[in-house]
Write a protein that binds this DNA or RNA. Structure first.
Lengths: 341, 341
DNA sequence: GGACGCATGTGCAACGTTGTAAATCCTAGC
DNA sequence: GCTAGGATTTACAACGTTGCACATGCGTCC
């Protein structure tokens, strides 16, 4: 009856007493120590089952200096890309026997800094960190004394493991796709002025490279600023573009949320997608396949990113090799209706 | 320089030694024990700062029997409703000084049962559980010996706290809204045959009530089954409806994902929304405001649900009152373009 | 026949913190 | 100056587990 749970205080001592062995033997059984006679193992297992024993993880953590918890710090779960990323990270972690503590930074720089030194780091064996606001100037803050894996592009070349994607090439592919459809006046929305690093800057770089490779002149009026990559921002960018009267026949949203906001705003103004304006996004969130029209996008290999990140972190936690690694995930162009496919 | 972090082993003993007090005094300072001389407190604080001391939370947990972590079990984060719910729960928890461990059940019954008895329950002080597949027969499994707050409708009247919404009334309001727009052939998508409990059954009940109240006959052909409430299912439901040739001028998606899938499928078939077919969803996910056309929905008071759930759980963890409570969150109709607003 | 070596099981201490109860310090009251 | 009584501080044990070093048991090799 007593069920399990933990509150109810059945410890290794109880199991040991019932099985007639020492506490340490129970510990050995639980931890799959190899040298145990089958009979003993069975006896102990029976006692465990009978009492509904569950390991006290706090005690184990105290003793081992490990919690079996990894942290995942990201901007916010209500952004679909990060929700899907979290989903993948949790699955990957579960497959490897650890659990995930999620912290939201709200894309606030101070909050991102805080997360690195929070008391909670003491509760996790390591951190997978996806910063949005930290820049090269904050590199020092990332020199932490616990295992850290950084996702994304904001800060290069520090002493930590890094999982990223080739933003430049991916953005170039997205832009090239628009060009292949015959578009020449391609707007980019969500740019971050003044940044030379980070996803925004790199993706704009890829955009420029594609234009250059096709001999299309760069029109600064087609590059629209947009701080937060939310749907609302995407809509505002379109409003801005239309407001300035600049001509455009395609929109490259630096992420899908921006592109979705753009779709929305274009639709509201009666501008046909893709006939009048083609739209492509970046991230390939689940939504992209269900909008009207469906949204072309760049699939960033989210699953791969999540798994690599967890693997790198666990390797770092386990100790061993010293070299910090950079993993670059694969991307793929996913053409859909919004670019006429 | 040594920064903080925790790996690096500075304990209360170190602080005590540096400050020239006992370990317990350090503990007292850290825990804001009232009777400490200001001079002592200052001395200790200085030592703490100097050494960059951080409390070892595993040790504290072991000693106190509490971890400061609460669990949140939900189907999957890639479903926008649950991502947004998780966002709200994490915020609410943070405001109250606890952190959240998320477990995904994948909407699998066995996985939902496992989560209740998992070793991880030992790591959390309590659980907020949003089951999708458990039914009344599983009520016994929910009789656990740790603090539990159940979200949603699947299982009523057990010995646990419950945060829910009035699904029947909300569904009735959604249906009534469609009727108010002059619709009479209203399809429902995502129904679960044979269930008498759970969101699906209750929302269908509200749908039926609205029809009855307006003297509209119930046509079973307009009630379309749909197990998983994903976008893909919503699209399939529309395909099914169209396939059977049954006439309809409105669709009530039992959640927004279904409704979004329906919008998609209707668009693909060239059926105009809302002129030919009006569509309403349920959950009011962020997406609903950005689709084309924007999606009318029922806002379930997600923020309120999250806060109440965390508050109930923390109250239960703190002990105290014995009576199990049921909180019913408010809902609101949010009319948008998809119903002609 | 004795010793060696591996398989198996055990006792003890320690992980870092906090509850308890008791020690010590002060200040006011006489 | 002396003492009661609250304010402060402290020593000790215990939370449940595991690493370590060691004890025991047993088959095998010379």
């Amino acid at each position: 009856m007593s069920s399990s749970g933990g509150r109810g205080a059945v410890t290794m001592h109880d199991v040991a007493a019932l099985a007639g062995v020492s506490v340490k033997t129970v510990s050995n059984v639980v931890n799959d120590y190899p040298h145990i006679r089958p009979a003993t193992r069975e006896k102990v297992q029976k006692a465990i089952d009978e009492l509904g024993y569950r390991m006290n993880l706090s005690a184990r953590s105290l003793r081992q200096g490990r919690t079996g918890i990894i942290g995942l710090a990201l901007p916010e779960l209500s952004l679909p890309y990060f929700a899907e990323l979290a989903d993948s990270v949790i699955r990957a972690a579960e497959a490897r026997g650890v659990v995930v503590l999620i912290e939201q930074t709200g894309a606030d720089r101070q909050h991102e800094l805080d997360v690195l030194t929070s008391d909670r780091r003491q509760l996790t064996d390591g951190l997978i960190f996806s910063p949005l606001e930290l820049g090269p100037d904050d590199a020092d803050a990332l020199k932490v004394d616990y295992p850290l894996v950084v996702l994304g592009e904001r800060i290069f070349g520090g002493d930590w493991d890094h999982v990223t994607m080739n933003n430049v090439d991916a953005a170039r592919a997205a832009t090239q796709h628009l060009i292949d459809q015959g578009r020449r006046r391609i707007a980019v929305i969500g740019a971050h002025a003044g940044e030379t690093m980070g996803s925004a800057a790199l993706r704009v770089l890829g955009y420029q490279a594609a234009l250059a490779a096709n001999g299309i002149p760069l029109d600064p009026d087609l590059i629209v600023e947009g701080g937060l990559w939310h749907r609302a921002t995407g809509a505002e960018c379109i409003d801005h573009l239309v407001g300035t009267g600049v001509e455009f026949d395609a929109v490259f949203g630096l992420n899908d949320a921006l592109a979705l906001g753009a779709l929305h705003a274009l639709h509201a103004r009666g501008i046909d997608v893709p006939d009048t304006v083609a739209v492509i996004g970046f991230d390939d969130i689940e939504d992209a396949a269900y909008t009207s029209p469906t949204l072309s996008s760049i699939s960033p290999g989210r699953e791969q990113i999540a798994q690599e990140a967890v693997d790198l972190l666990l390797a770092r936690i386990a100790g061993g090799d010293e070299a910090f690694r950079r993993v670059i995930a694969d991307f793929a162009l996913v053409p859909r209706e919004s670019t006429g496919s």
